[in-house]
Each structure stands twice: as C-alpha cells, then as structure tokens.
Design a protein around this nucleic acid. Structure first.
Lengths: 143, 143
DNA sequence: TATTGTTATACTCTATAACTATA
DNA sequence: TATAGTTATAGAGTATAACAATA
C-alpha cells in the first residue's frame, strides 16, 4: 500500500478536541464575563468548595494547569474575595485554598449559568449520548 | 432544594475538554517538534492535500481558527516550502492553498507519527470506544 | 534530595479593529 | 454592502527556570 496517509483530517481527534475545547471555553467565558471572571476561576472555586480546602497542586492537577498558573488564578480569586489561602497544619509548604462565604454564594448564583453552557457545549447530543460522551472523555483524561 | 450546585467539577465538560485538548496538543506538538512545525501546520497541509487547493477561509473553518491566524500559519508553511498560495480563477479575492511536492512527501513521512499520537490521545479506550468517541466529538463540533 | 509555592520571563495562542481588493 | 485576505496589536494562555521554605 503506497501513499496511505491515514484517516481524513475530519476524524483527527487532536483537531476535533481543539475545536470543541476552544468553542466550549469561548461560550463559558462569554457567559461568565458579566460576573467578572472566567471559566477557570469558577472551576477553581468549585474545586475548593468540593474539597473543603485543597492544595494548589491539586487544583493544577484537576484543571491541567502549571503550578505557576495556579498562583495567578488564586491571586485573582483572593482579590475578588471568593477564596482564601490557609496554612496546612500537616505540611507547612502547602497552602490550602478554600471558598469564602462570598465564594459559596457566587457558586449558587452562577451554577445555573454554567449548567446551560454545558448543555450548549454538547448541543447536538441526546441525554444518553451526553452521558456516554462525558464518561469516555473522563477516561481519555485518566480521571 | 437548596444549595444545588449542579454536578461535580469532575463531570464538567468544559474542564474535561480543555484538559483533553491541552494534553493531546502537547503530545502532538512534542512529536512533531523534530520536523520543525506544530500540529496545526501538519493539519493545514493535510487539509490542503485533501481539498486539492482550498481557500484560507476554509482552513480556518476546519481548524476553528481566526482568518488572521491562518495567514500566519500559511506564511510559515510557505517559507518551509510545504504549501503554496495560488490565485482562484473564479474569485480573485480568494487564494487557494495547495501542497507542494515537498508537502506531500512530508505528509507521508509524518503520517505514522500523527497516527500514534492519536492512538495515545485516546489511550484508555478500546477500538470501538474510540469510534464512538470520535463520532460524538464530531457532532459536538457540528462536523 | 524532593516537593510546594512563588517570581520572572518568554513564547504561543486568540481576538479585534482597520485596511485592500474584490464581489 | 459583503467577503477574502492582510497587518498590527493587545490580551490570554502556556511553559520554563530559578528560588525559598519545608519535608
């Protein structure tokens, strides 16, 4: 077989993921813009709330961000009054990020907005297909 | 029901897509680095080859890129000698991008590398699951 | 020796506006 | 009036190296 160049670019996972991610992120950031922060800020407060005080490393691991990016992110959120850094009594290198009361209030207010963004990000799919898609996506990212 | 803040961040499609895309792109760019270009360059030559001379607009549409980004991309590829711009006889505003012989040779050489990247990008999935995943992903991006 | 967080920095990516030439 | 491509530019995102404090 000569000249086999694999599948079409339209089946290229790397391209498809880049497009899907770019589009979902643009939608999410546009929807959150009125609140004065972006998708990753919302996600960080949510991670902090779910974990009840999580090390910055862990935030980076969940979001796929470099530790230095997490510093900037948590700085933003601290100056917005949505999270606070606290010393970890068990490891003084670590700083635990937890939501402030304002952060929790924000989560409740913004949650439906984010819900609609997620629906829209999987627009063409049925409910069952969305479940399948998210389940496969989680395995793709080893979660 | 009070305090319902939707699903866990671990089921957040926007977060999952951003992680999957970032990881796939890093893998692809690292694999292509020895060849002197990145994933989007490869994809552009491939689009040009499949279409046999495609307008820059169309490249932007397939890759989800702004027209101004496509200009820079095609500039890069032209100076690498992998594609050329040709006037469209039917519309003199349009410039058709087509692969050079060197571009076609490159595609054949790089294709197996990209194939392995794609496999790796869907590492945990079976062949059947990969098909399902790509099919759903294409519908998510309306392709 | 290894790890957490931090700073500084450079590079890439994304998005917009303003422009030209064509339609 | 609208569209294809171009330029310049600003802003966001990503990545690296070097460092202090702590394990």
């Amino acid at each position: 077989m000569t000249g086999d160049q694999g599948t079409s670019i339209r089946e290229d996972v790397v391209v498809l993921l880049a497009r899907a991610s770019g589009s979902a992120l643009r939608t999410a950031n546009a929807a959150l813009e009125p609140f004065g922060f972006r998708a990753r800020h919302y996600a960080t407060v949510k991670i902090a709330a779910e974990g009840g005080g999580v090390p910055q490393r862990q935030i980076g691991a969940v979001l796929g961000l470099d530790p230095s990016a997490v510093v900037a992110l948590v700085d933003d959120l601290e100056s917005l009054g949505l999270v606070q850094r606290q010393p970890d009594p068990d490891d003084r290198r670590t700083r635990l990020v937890s939501p402030t009361p304002a952060g929790l209030t924000m989560l409740e207010k913004v949650s439906p907005v984010v819900g609609r963004v997620q629906e829209r990000s999987m627009g063409g799919l049925t409910a069952a297909e969305r479940d399948t898609f998210v389940r496969l996506l989680r395995r793709v990212v080893n979660e």
